Amino acid sequence: MKTITLQAVGRVHSTRGKAEDDNWDKEKVYIELDATQFTPEALAGLADFSHVEILFHMDQVDPAKVEKTARHPRNNTDWPKVGIFAQRGKNRPNQIGATICRILKVDGIQLHLEGLDAIDGSPVLDIKPWVAEFAPRGEVFQPQWITELMRSYWRS
């Protein structure tokens, strides 16, 4: 396979210094763009959107814990053993996180958000406005175990 090299566009500033599973909507964070690459013009127009999708690197995951097969989500044996690509856990092969967050404000090269599930210092790979037309088309369904898992992920 081809190796891909990416350069972070910014960093996450958060009160969370370690990965925890729940209550992420309480987090008010900001992303600060890399001032050597970007000016405030890079965020121009973004405040006209309610939400943004953030792609980030979960760089603090222990490489020894990266999963490439199947496991019980959160090691809960009440839930089925499923492949790493059938769950959103942090211990994934490329440690890429993707989250849709509410935009609170844009201030210079800082993007203030609510509900980003990235820890302090996480490198940001990309920022994209959330556009309704990119939402899923057709019926959406998921297994019951993920509904149970996500009950307190955003709010307690």
Score class of each variant (00 low, 15 high):
residue 45 G to D: 05
residue 45 G to L: 05
residue 46 L to T: 03
residue 46 L to G: 06
residue 47 A to P: 01
residue 47 A to G: 08
residue 47 A to F: 03
residue 47 A to R: 00
residue 48 D to N: 14
residue 48 D to A: 15
residue 48 D to G: 15
residue 49 F to H: 13
residue 49 F to K: 02
residue 49 F to C: 07
residue 51 H to V: 04
residue 52 V to N: 01
residue 52 V to I: 06
residue 52 V to G: 01
residue 54 I to M: 03
residue 54 I to Y: 00
residue 54 I to G: 01
residue 55 L to D: 02
residue 56 F to D: 01
residue 57 H to K: 09
residue 57 H to Y: 13
residue 57 H to L: 09
residue 59 D to E: 08
residue 59 D to V: 02
residue 59 D to N: 14
residue 61 V to M: 12
residue 62 D to F: 09
residue 65 K to H: 12
residue 65 K to G: 04
residue 65 K to Y: 06
residue 66 V to M: 05
residue 68 K to A: 07
residue 69 T to A: 14
residue 70 A to C: 13
residue 71 R to F: 15
residue 72 H to E: 06
residue 73 P to Q: 01
residue 73 P to H: 00
residue 73 P to T: 01
residue 73 P to L: 02
residue 75 N to W: 10
residue 75 N to Q: 13
residue 78 D to R: 14
residue 78 D to H: 12
residue 78 D to C: 07
residue 78 D to E: 15
residue 79 W to T: 01
residue 79 W to D: 03
residue 80 P to Y: 08
residue 81 K to L: 14
residue 81 K to T: 15
residue 81 K to S: 15
residue 81 K to Q: 15
residue 81 K to C: 15
residue 83 G to A: 15
residue 84 I to R: 00
residue 84 I to T: 00
residue 85 F to K: 11
residue 85 F to V: 07
residue 85 F to G: 04
residue 85 F to N: 11
